[in-house]
Design a binder for these strands. Structure first.
Lengths: 250, 250
DNA sequence: CGCCCTTTTGAGGCATTTCAAACATTGTGG
DNA sequence: CCACAATGTTTGAAATGCCTCAAAAGGGCG
């Protein structure tokens, strides 16, 4: 429907032509040939430094964000001041989705390293989407993917031992890198031990001990934030020893 | 846009006219006067018994479901066989969303008590939505609301003590009942101790002890699955003592 | 070089799990 | 309608994984 109307909404795909991650991003809903060349309105942020916030819990919804390079941590905090990291995001990931329900961000997003993002005014996004239904579909898929990820996170926190959580985390990172064409077995973590600990809901000291243990057992090689996985099989093994609390469905 | 087209998609709103929860459901995206009277195609299931599944993890996506009466548990399970309850659903809630990403359900849904649901063929839903953009918006809002809920669940599992989890759970149930016009302080739980335990990721025995403790301390009155909250203030208090693992954002 | 923050390592403590057993409730078939 | 089995709940006592506290070691950066 009305492909020729897309031209009136240049912001969405303005700079997608030269983006190597457009295949992984909601922009794939727009056929390349329909993407106008005019790169005017899509706000592509200059690099954010580690610690810079894309948005904070409580901020009004203005834009959604897509990671272009670098990585981002999403976290929420309580009235009590305690906080929980709910996701790590990498290039192609859509952020800020949870603000749609109440026009207000329900989580905070902060750059873990030097990071670039595309900022998409939400009003623009819905305007384009009503012209290109495929974009609605893509947005729904993105939301559904995030739901699945959060369910896995709940299973991780609810059913796995500290060691299994840690192994699962490493495999998660490994897979994300592999999906982007990077090495599955060697990478630099963009998050600190503290940040890993919070995401996995264990103490920092536990993470430190696990790094040491797995290195001693020949599963990993670690140097500060650099990790080399020596045995993916061993990691997979470790990732699967559960605790099985209150299981019940026949 | 094209309100007169809606008539060609009767299924969605077929029986919404006489549904007391339509205000809480995605159907609210459709103006009452635009809802056709012809109640033909919307599959409204006859009552499901406790234990009956709406769908299982791995099933092909055919429909989304809206709870009409009763309640539903959503859970996922591992390769290892351990399982994690990820949500409890009540009238008006949309289920099956996580199947959209890969055309396959990524969680299972099972009735907790005698339950009726509206079954909406997904193809129909998207067809109607492309005619009525407000429906897309409503679907997105629903997805975003579920994302927020799952983030809260992660914070619950990651940062709270068993007691705080339990208090938070009771307040959650209390609020859901209140939102539906039922008593905030007296209700019958539709889930077993085992199911509560799994959702909160603690041992069944811990739940049992917590019920006993809170009753002894005069916060609750409990008789099997019937609960009377004697002090909402005390519960709120209990819900907020955290553990604060690895907090770090300045 | 010296300060600060992150990471590591050790020892002890505690919340929660596990294990075990009694008890209550529900469902079933005679 | 009752015995009986199966399942769900409660309670106690012991075990343990992980946290907390403390302190040293290692890098990064002005």
């Amino acid at each position: 429907m009305a492909d020729n109307n897309i031209i009136s909404f240049p912001p969405l795909n303005a700079t997608c032509a030269n983006c190597r991650w457009s295949r992984f991003c909601v922009a794939r809903a727009l056929e390349p040939e329909t993407r106008p060349q005019a790169a005017k309105n899509l706000v592509c942020s200059g690099p954010l430094r580690r610690g810079a916030h894309l948005f904070r819990q409580g901020d009004e919804l203005k834009s959604l964000y897509i990671v272009r390079s670098g990585s981002v941590k999403a976290y929420i905090d309580n009235e009590d001041g305690c906080e929980q990291t709910v996701a790590f995001h990498f290039p192609g990931d859509l952020l800020g989705f949870d603000a749609i329900a109440g026009d207000m961000h329900q989580s905070s997003a902060v750059a873990l390293e030097t990071t670039a993002v595309c900022s998409i005014p939400y009003a623009r996004l819905t305007a384009v989407a009503s012209e290109v239904p495929a974009l609605w579909n893509e947005l729904m898929r993105s939301a559904a993917t995030q739901l699945i990820a959060k369910q896995s996170h709940a299973l991780l926190l609810g059913q796995k031992s500290a060691q299994a959580r840690f192994a699962t985390f490493l495999l998660f990172i490994s897979n994300r890198f592999a999906a982007r064409g990077c090495s599955r077995t060697e990478f630099n973590l963009s998050m600190s031990r503290q940040e890993i600990a919070n995401y996995l809901a264990v103490a920092v000291e536990t993470i430190s001990r696990l790094f040491t243990d797995l290195q001693r057992r020949g599963v990993l090689e670690v140097d500060r934030r650099f990790v080399r996985i020596l045995s993916l099989d061993a990691l997979n093994e470790l990732a699967h020893d559960g605790r099985s609390l209150g299981v019940s469905n026949a």
